[in-house]
Simulated scan of single mutants.
Amino acid sequence: MPVLRVIAAAVVRVVLLTVFYLVYVEAISRSDSTDALGAGLLFFLIVVVVALAWATWDGARRGFVAAIVVWLLTGAGVGATVTVAYVISTETAGAFIDELRDGWLFFALLVFVPALPGAGVGGLIHRARRRTPTA
């Protein structure tokens, strides 16, 4: 498990998920919809499905441990970047530390919790591929 590859993989995932968040928020703010709850739930669903599927793919390619490390770093990074973007966009500078702490944990868990079973399934696929048939 090369450390630089794991970090690079996590950075790519953080950047893509953060860009998705920014694009999604911008699209919602430009829409005529007033259904903030539905938009938020749709965002959560998309992030959960993406984390689950991508972690499964990572687990199948890298193995369970490497996939978990990648997604643990990804969860921490997405938690920080999305929360900072939210605090900047809402201009709640007075409560910056509270928002950062609470938002970071929420978004980190939103990414990492569905990635955990995905990495597990992917790790099982990786292990099954590595087995050599006995003849």
Results as ranks from 00 to 15, higher is better:
residue 99 E to R: 05
residue 63 G to E: 08
residue 99 E to F: 10
residue 119 A to F: 15
residue 90 T to L: 04
residue 113 V to N: 15
residue 117 P to M: 09
residue 92 T to I: 00
residue 53 A to K: 06
residue 51 A to P: 08
residue 53 A to E: 04
residue 76 A to K: 00
residue 107 F to A: 00
residue 92 T to M: 08
residue 77 G to C: 00
residue 114 P to K: 09
residue 54 W to S: 15
residue 61 R to G: 05
residue 64 F to Y: 10
residue 117 P to A: 14
residue 94 G to Q: 14
residue 110 L to R: 07
residue 80 A to R: 09
residue 49 V to S: 02
residue 95 A to P: 07
residue 103 G to F: 08
residue 68 I to N: 01
residue 46 I to K: 04
residue 61 R to P: 01
residue 57 W to N: 04
residue 44 F to Y: 11
residue 76 A to Y: 05
residue 64 F to C: 06
residue 43 F to R: 03
residue 113 V to W: 12
residue 73 L to Q: 04
residue 98 D to G: 14
residue 83 T to V: 08
residue 123 G to I: 09
residue 65 V to S: 03
residue 54 W to T: 09
residue 52 L to W: 09
residue 79 G to L: 11
residue 59 G to A: 07
residue 52 L to Q: 04
residue 113 V to F: 12
residue 60 A to V: 03
residue 106 F to W: 13
residue 68 I to M: 10
residue 79 G to P: 06
residue 70 V to I: 14
residue 115 A to Q: 09
residue 72 L to P: 01
residue 104 W to G: 10
residue 95 A to H: 02
residue 98 D to E: 13
residue 100 L to M: 15
residue 50 V to K: 02
residue 80 A to I: 07
residue 108 A to T: 11
residue 45 L to E: 01
residue 122 G to C: 07
residue 78 V to D: 00
residue 67 A to N: 05
residue 87 V to P: 04
residue 89 S to E: 10
residue 76 A to I: 13
